[in-house]
Simulated assay, not measured.
Amino acid sequence: MPRTVFLSGPAGSGKTTILRLSHDLKLTTWGRTAAIDTDQLFLMVDPHWDLPYDDARTALVLRQSARLTESFIGAGYDNVLIAGNAIHDAIDLNPVIPDLLKLGQVFHISLDPSEEAVLHRTADDPDRSPAHLINDLHLLRAKRSPWSAPVDNSTLSPLETLQQIAHLIRTGKGEIHGPPPDPA
């Protein structure tokens, strides 16, 4: 059965790096796997990240992610990873969950590395403020929903992280069977 996997986590947690693993590594680890980076979809509308957060734009990006997922699954992909910062709460995800469940199983995984790992991974990026990165890490950690399966990938390589995600999903961790409850 095809699987859609939402992959959330703070900046510097490794989401994009996992999405960029080669097709062959994804294939041997987990089967035919497509990757959707929601940042790329946001950049189509706001190429310089100038605009303030907007619920309607987030909803548009998630609807487009669901449509791309349908296309990939229709083309025979076993898994579709959808990664981004804006996919961690039920309010944003619930509008697309019913459509994705019609395609197959749906899971939610949260990358949760240590502060040290985030700072090490982003050390060469002068546009990333260490204080902002740590604040983001703590904010997302505090907001993590009980229906999301956490992965501490502090000491894992991107491939090992993908292997851990595949293992969690094979054991049913983080599976979403319907729109998750909003904790607010």
Rank of each mutant, 00 (worst) to 15 (best):
L19R: 09
R20G: 13
L21N: 09
H23N: 10
H23D: 15
L27H: 14
T28N: 11
T29Y: 04
T29P: 06
T29F: 03
G31C: 06
R32P: 00
R32S: 14
R32K: 15
R32I: 09
A34L: 07
I36C: 04
I36N: 09
D37P: 03
Q40W: 07
Q40H: 12
L41E: 06
F42S: 04
M44K: 13
V45N: 08
D46R: 06
H48W: 11
W49L: 12
D50K: 09
D50G: 13
L51D: 08
P52T: 12
P52Y: 05
Y53W: 12
D54R: 04
D54N: 14
D55I: 02
T58L: 07
A59W: 07
V61H: 04
L62K: 05
Q64W: 07
S65C: 08
S65I: 02
S65V: 00
A66T: 07
R67F: 12
T69I: 03
F72A: 07
I73C: 04
G74H: 09
G74F: 08
A75K: 13
D78L: 00
N79W: 10
N79D: 05
V80N: 06
I82S: 11
N85Q: 09
A86T: 14
I87P: 00
D89R: 15
D89H: 15
I91W: 13
L93I: 11
P98G: 06
P98W: 08
L101T: 06
L101K: 02
L103S: 11
Q105I: 00
F107S: 10
L111D: 00
L111I: 03
L111E: 02
P113Q: 08
P113S: 06
P113G: 06
E116G: 11
A117G: 00
V118H: 00
V118A: 01
L119Q: 03
L119M: 02
H120W: 01
H120Y: 02
H120C: 01
R121G: 05
R121I: 01
T122S: 11
A123V: 09
